[in-house]
């Protein structure tokens, strides 16, 4: 993997900025997402809210379903593989999906190792709760980072926590002297060269998106104002009572996240959002964000 090839992967992530990436489980849903103005879709068999409810092992989707979605829409199609399951990632690569999400939403295949993502030509996105986790994933070759949040909860609180944590740790890093950086890298468990790079740039070297619990136009605006460059909406759209209108409204709120009047218009007259879960209702062992490290 040359630097040029890695830059091309980051390039696609750049193109997705300022947009909304939607989870879809069928070609029909993918069409609704594309028509609403989504800049990409994530093809998966069950949305996180249903994975949480149904239990059992969540795996990569059936290639037939991914292909059907690729044939239906012209925007980029992403798909998820299990953490550490590089064979699933190899299959997704042969399908020529545009991005692979090595995702905590699926049941991890390896409790110790994530995929060595530099071996692939397809770019990867990975979840993170803090700067150390983000830099470990970038070190392995992720071309895009998203907050983990708590997928399928319809509750924005964890995505906010993760975005604020990453931003605060980056801010702190830019104030450190050179002789304090190795200790910081050790504390975070992050690759030293990437720690130096973030100190210099003041931001991650790859785009930083938000995911995990976004359910309303206001949630999208909040995450964008906290520093996200794009939002993923998983269960929030197709678990609501009015997917089409809500999908459009979230797109509008993301484009105009700084214009509260426009976000207000987008929020007006929507039917019920997904019901959602309080964090205290999710037993600690069942929190998806705890998967991976």
């Amino acid at each position: 993997m040359t630097k040029g090839e890695f830059d091309v992967k980051i390039g696609l992530a750049e193109m997705l900025k300022g947009g909304v990436i939607m989870d879809v489980t069928s070609a029909d849903q993918a069409k609704i997402a594309e028509d609403a103005g989504a800049c990409a879709v994530m093809a998966l068999e069950r949305i996180p809210a249903d994975i949480r409810e149904d239990g059992g092992i969540a795996r990569m989707s059936d290639p037939a379903m991914i292909k059907e979605i690729q044939e239906t829409v012209s925007i980029p199609v992403m798909a998820k593989c299990r953490i550490g399951h590089f064979a699933e990632a190899q299959i997704l690569e042969t399908l020529e999906v545009d991005f692979i999400d090595e995702s905590e939403v699926l049941t991890p295949a390896d409790e110790k190792n994530h995929i060595w993502k530099h071996d692939f030509k397809i770019p990867f996105v990975c979840g993170a709760r803090n700067l150390g986790e983000a830099l470990r994933r970038i070190g392995e070759g992720a071309a895009m980072i998203r907050t983990k949040g708590e997928a399928g909860s319809g509750n924005i609180v964890e995505a906010v926590r993760h975005m604020r944590t990453i931003q605060a740790e980056m801010k702190k890093l830019t104030t450190l002297d050179q002789d304090e950086m190795m200790a910081f890298a050790r504390e975070m468990g992050a690759p030293f060269s990437l720690v130096q790079e973030v100190a210099e740039l003041g931001k991650l070297p790859v785009p930083n998106f938000a995911a995990g619990g976004i359910a309303t136009p206001a949630d999208a605006s909040l995450m964008m104002q906290l520093g996200a460059e794009t939002v993923f909406v998983g269960s929030g759209i197709f678990k609501s009572d009015d997917p089409e209108t809500r999908a459009k409204a979230v797109v509008e709120a993301t484009t105009h996240f700084l214009d509260a009047k426009k976000v207000a218009e987008a929020s007006t007259g929507l039917k019920n959002a997904m019901k959602g879960l309080e964090m205290s209702e999710i037993p600690e062992g069942e929190r998806l964000q705890e998967r991976g490290w």
Binding site: E14, A36, P76
Partner: peptide, 14 residues
């Protein structure tokens, strides 16, 4: 700029 042309077209019309 670059981005998704379907998205740009939908939003420019909207």
């Amino acid at each position: 700029p670059g981005g998704e042309s379907t998205t740009l077209s939908i939003l420019m019309e909207r």
